[in-house]
Amino acid sequence: MKAMVETLHLMKAGKPRGDMLMDWAQLRDRIGFDAYYEESERYASSRRDG
């Protein structure tokens, strides 16, 4: 939480914060997007149309 508050202060001040942020691939992995999409694909064939 402290890191998030500090990053928000840097953003507000217009200061660089690159070392405080994850790139998109890291964020997707951390949140679990990739695992969600992989699991979702397992059930794609069981979807009903209409």
Score class of each variant (00 low, 15 high):
1 M>N: 07
1 M>H: 10
2 K>Y: 12
2 K>C: 07
3 A>N: 08
3 A>Y: 02
3 A>G: 01
4 M>D: 12
5 V>S: 08
5 V>N: 07
5 V>I: 15
6 E>I: 11
7 T>Y: 05
7 T>L: 14
7 T>M: 11
7 T>R: 10
8 L>T: 03
8 L>E: 14
8 L>Y: 13
8 L>S: 06
8 L>W: 12
9 H>Y: 09
9 H>P: 03
9 H>R: 14
9 H>F: 09
10 L>N: 01
10 L>C: 02
10 L>A: 03
11 M>N: 02
11 M>L: 14
11 M>V: 11
11 M>Y: 05
11 M>P: 02
11 M>W: 06
12 K>H: 09
12 K>Y: 04
12 K>T: 06
13 A>H: 05
13 A>C: 02
13 A>E: 14
13 A>M: 12
13 A>V: 00
14 G>D: 03
15 K>L: 15
15 K>D: 07
16 P>I: 12
16 P>E: 14
16 P>A: 14
16 P>F: 00
16 P>Q: 11
17 R>E: 08
17 R>K: 14
18 G>W: 04
18 G>M: 04
19 D>P: 02
19 D>H: 07
19 D>W: 00
20 M>G: 01
20 M>Y: 04
21 L>K: 05
21 L>S: 02
21 L>F: 05
22 M>F: 09
23 D>R: 03
24 W>Y: 13
24 W>N: 11
24 W>K: 13
24 W>I: 15
24 W>G: 03
24 W>L: 14
26 Q>K: 10
26 Q>H: 02
26 Q>V: 02
26 Q>Y: 01
27 L>K: 09
27 L>V: 05
27 L>W: 15
27 L>Q: 10
28 R>W: 02
28 R>C: 12
28 R>P: 04
28 R>G: 01
28 R>Q: 09
28 R>A: 07
29 D>L: 06
29 D>Q: 08
29 D>C: 04
29 D>H: 03
30 R>H: 14
31 I>H: 03
31 I>Y: 00
32 G>Q: 06
32 G>V: 01
32 G>P: 02
32 G>L: 00
32 G>R: 01
33 F>W: 15
33 F>M: 15
34 D>W: 03
34 D>I: 05
34 D>Y: 04
34 D>K: 09
34 D>V: 08
35 A>Q: 15
35 A>Y: 04
35 A>L: 14
36 Y>G: 02
36 Y>V: 10
36 Y>D: 05
36 Y>E: 10
37 Y>V: 08
37 Y>S: 01
37 Y>A: 01
37 Y>C: 01
37 Y>G: 01
38 E>C: 08
38 E>V: 12
38 E>S: 10
38 E>D: 15
38 E>A: 14
38 E>N: 12
39 E>L: 11
39 E>K: 10
39 E>H: 07
40 S>G: 08
40 S>Y: 03
40 S>D: 04
41 E>V: 07
41 E>D: 15
42 R>A: 09
42 R>K: 15
43 Y>H: 11
43 Y>V: 08
44 A>H: 01
45 S>R: 07
45 S>Y: 00
45 S>V: 08
45 S>F: 00
45 S>H: 08
46 S>W: 05
46 S>D: 07
46 S>H: 06
46 S>V: 05
47 R>Y: 09
47 R>V: 09
47 R>L: 11
48 R>M: 10
48 R>W: 11
48 R>K: 14
48 R>Q: 13
48 R>I: 10
49 D>A: 13
49 D>P: 00
49 D>W: 09
50 G>C: 02
50 G>H: 03
50 G>E: 05
50 G>K: 05
